[in-house]
Amino acid sequence: MSCSKFKKIKVCEFVTYLLPHNPEDAGLLWIIRDGTDGTLEIDGPCGVLLTFSEKICYFHHYIRWSNFLLNEKIQSYIRKLVYDLARFLTAQYAVYVPDSGAKESSILDFIWDDENKDMDYIRNWLLERCGAPKAKIADIHQQYEDYWESEGYYIDYFDDLQLDKSDI
């Protein structure tokens, strides 16, 4: 499958942004395959992977978490892509958590068949176990004297992204 199938969603724009850093991925096609534990995966160039459960879409990429938290340009690309995915899938919001190593990342286990939880369950789980979401994505990054930590999560209601619904 070519990237043009995703033209209504900013996936191609995001991949184009990443390609200069991954020139060996130029021309790679998207592959649809059965994933782990009842999921479906769409695997694309530059480490872009969409994993679908019955109720959740997990968007994975290999931009470092700290770069996403602190680089507004990268944040903007990812947020616009996620906004388009959310609209396409009729989701009201998205949740940003690190992919491993933090309590918040435990929600990733909820997409597999044995759990198969929905977004409201995940949002409530985070609120009960991890506290309130951060006010801004960058607030997750906590800098200490000689190291930094990821502390918290962010729920994106996309209030600042007002795109025309005819783009769907």
Rank of each mutant, 00 (worst) to 15 (best):
D160T: 11
D25A: 11
N71Y: 02
R79Y: 02
F52I: 05
P20Y: 14
F88R: 10
E149Q: 14
L126D: 01
L163R: 02
T16G: 06
E41C: 15
Y154N: 06
L127I: 10
K55N: 10
L70A: 00
N116K: 04
A94Y: 14
P20N: 08
D34G: 04
S76I: 01
D114M: 08
I78H: 08
R79G: 06
E149S: 12
L40C: 02
L81H: 12
E115M: 14
E24Y: 15
I63A: 06
R79A: 04
A94G: 02
I9S: 07
G27W: 15
F6W: 14
E145C: 06
W148L: 03
Q143R: 15
S105V: 05
W125N: 04
P133R: 10
H60T: 03
T90M: 05
D84R: 07
R64S: 09
I155P: 04
S166Q: 08
I107H: 02
A94R: 00
V97T: 03
D114E: 15
D43R: 13
T16S: 13
W112N: 03
W148M: 06
E13G: 04
Y96H: 07
L28M: 10
A91W: 11
T36H: 13
K165Q: 02
D156I: 09
M1A: 11
D120N: 14
T36S: 02
N67A: 10
L28S: 10
I42S: 00
W148E: 12
D156Q: 04
W112H: 10
A91Q: 14
T51I: 04
D99G: 11
C130W: 01
A86V: 05
S66V: 14
L108I: 03
F68P: 08
E54Y: 10
L163C: 00
L69C: 14
M119L: 10
A132S: 14
I32N: 03
V82I: 13
K117T: 06
T90N: 09
G27D: 06
L163M: 05
D43K: 15
Y153D: 04
A26I: 09
R129I: 02
L18D: 00
L29C: 11
D84A: 09
G38P: 09
Y153R: 11
A138E: 10
W148D: 04
E149A: 14
Y147F: 13
I31E: 09
S106N: 13
D114C: 01
